[in-house]
Design a protein around this nucleic acid. Structure first.
Lengths: 350, 350
DNA sequence: CTGAAAGCGCTAACAG
DNA sequence: CTGTTAGCGCTTTCAG
């Protein structure tokens, strides 16, 4: 019934601009070899008709191939970065049919050296675009400068280096996530003392947890300035030492009930609490690692603040592909993803 | 470097099966007119080569058109169903280029009659597929039986009628959402009395809130069997009456602190609390209506349990389109979406 | 029942 | 600089 608006095609444009399809194609992909006159005319007609190229026809006809590499920390099963990789893989599957090949390049997030090696290797490959999880600040800055020189577009996930002209960023609003953590910890149950636990990192690290910590302190200063806040360093992998450290800590602070970690390893603390049967604690942590989830289910972790990490990887790659394939810029430069609150009662459907 | 696996095309299949492209196409879309012999041969080759049709080429060549209608309750701006419509519209935009036309048909969720009218109108249109938000149980059952007879695939959003052969369902796990609501309400702060507020609905309503209520009671029985639970009916649109009702209620229960609504209208209660400056309450509600969000931001609503309602509409339509266009069945029949917990501190990034 | 042929909208040589 | 032409992989007539 309704006047079926026929899709306007390159042929229509050609006809109305009084040139051939070939010329229209040339101006669309501005690959030169067109007189300014024709060019202007074609652009005008395109504007007028609201011509949008049919991507499927385009992809079908072209034999373009793109290589994208994702640069992220190496990981074992169940770790934070595995989730990121899943999103990347998902995007990889989706864009495979568009002839884009996505490769993940990993480095040791505790070694500057390893990062440098990785970036060097990457630069010789000259990929069409790069996704970066910037673990080290100044090294990343140097690296993206190289990308810029080579005209390679790049996007950030997890965190970002502010003054580089990245295509897009996908991550959690860190300050706010610390603020939220504080509220979940003490918002409905005023506390006289709280403790947070941290992990030592090398210098130059793009320390996401530091900003989170600031958010936490900001909340505490605002609402509970009198609350005592203790901090304690833990080791990332050495369980035994951690037990000693924690024994000492809880000996010294036997009444402390409210605990929080700003990194993704809340399970270290949770495992300790289980072992010592300290079950009157409130523990807030971040990120849905398998081990964290398990502790959440048992009720040892009270809240987990998390995000769809997979989405970050997925959307990051997507933004690069859309740029490459369709010349589409992402709707937003900085994409702060939602902070999801997980408890034992909603985790199963997440 | 790597042996570029050429995509296997219909031509390859035709060649190896010693038939023409036309015949291959006929068996792929099993539209008959093929001898059993050719058919078998072609199938065999397809299997062997792992042939997958190129959907873009297919869409490009074909002039198929599909009409899908979405049957949902009518809504004003800011209401629950508007969010659903947004997801539907998003999908509509995405699939427009595949020549699928998506129309939304609304009915009055408080009127059986209106629903019957809508379904009748829908059935004469004979759309290619239908998305249903089943407000009324037996009427929906009758309706989908008609769809079944006509071979029209359909999907449910929000809630479902169990024993109908729907293509997919997208919604919240209702029982669990009630359970979670209870935990947020009293889990960290034992209560002696709590109250929930409800809205009257016609008979036959697919009452999502009823199941939610059950979840709530289940939690309370399990953890706080001694807690007193009061209930109070409110009216969906009559603010003045509600004020009287609530004045009476809080006169009778002056000490009650923990309040919950299982429908999406927590803002009714919140507005009342604001007006009477009752600011020592904990209020848990569902769904992120604009008005709820506003109250959450002000701290009058403590927690909002919600889901990406837009996603339900989007995914529901998507599952129908994928079926129609690509003959893909959805990965899961029942898709329970995550229950997201919103507080004033994470709502801004949702 | 089957094959041949003409596109779908776009790209990419290739003459001119 | 520009028009022409031959496909990309698939669908859809239309003879036979």
């Amino acid at each position: 019934m309704c006047a079926q608006q026929k899709r306007v095609t390159i042929k229509d444009v050609a006809r109305l601009a009084k040139v051939s399809k070939g010329t229209v194609d040339r101006v669309i992909h501005n690959r030169g070899e067109v007189s300014e006159e024709s060019r202007a005319k074609v652009m005008e007609v395109i504007e007028q008709l609201g011509y949008k190229p049919n991507m499927y026809a385009s992809l079908l006809a072209s034999k373009r191939e793109y290589k994208i590499v994702a640069l992220i920390p190496e990981f074992s099963e169940g770790e934070f970065w595995e989730l990121m990789q899943r999103g990347i893989s998902k995007a990889a599957r989706e864009y495979a049919e568009f002839n884009v090949d996505i490769e993940t390049l990993c480095f040791d997030q505790f070694s500057l050296n390893s990062f440098e090696h990785a970036t060097a290797r990457l630069l010789v490959e000259l990929p069409a675009a790069v996704l970066i999880a910037p673990s080290f600040k100044s090294l990343t800055a140097q690296f993206v400068e190289q990308l810029r020189i080579n005209g390679i577009p790049f996007a950030y996930v997890d965190s970002k280096i502010d003054d580089s002209d990245y295509l897009s960023f996908f991550g959690m609003p860190l300050f706010e996530s610390g603020y939220l953590g504080a509220d979940l910890l003490v918002g409905r149950q005023a506390a006289e003392e709280v403790a947070y636990f941290r992990i030592h990192r090398p210098e130059d690290t793009a320390n996401t947890t530091a900003i989170r910590r600031e958010g936490f302190f900001s909340y505490m200063r605002e609402f509970y300035p009198q609350c005592k806040i203790y901090s304690q360093f833990l080791l990332p992998y050495d369980q035994e030492s951690n037990e000693q450290i924690l024994d000492l800590f809880f000996e010294k602070h036997p009444h402390i009930q409210h605990l929080i970690t700003f990194n993704s390893r809340a399970f270290i603390l949770a495992d300790y609490l289980k072992k010592r049967v300290l079950d009157n604690k409130i523990l807030v942590g971040y990120d849905m690692l398998e081990s964290n989830i398990a502790c959440l289910r048992e009720g040892v972790i009270t809240y987990l603040i998390t995000q769809r990490i997979e989405n970050q990887g997925y959307e990051g790659i997507k933004s690069l592909c859309d740029k490459l394939l369709f010349h589409n810029d992402p709707p937003k430069l900085n994409n702060y993803m939602s902070m999801d609150i997980l408890t034992r009662y909603n985790v199963n459907y997440y």
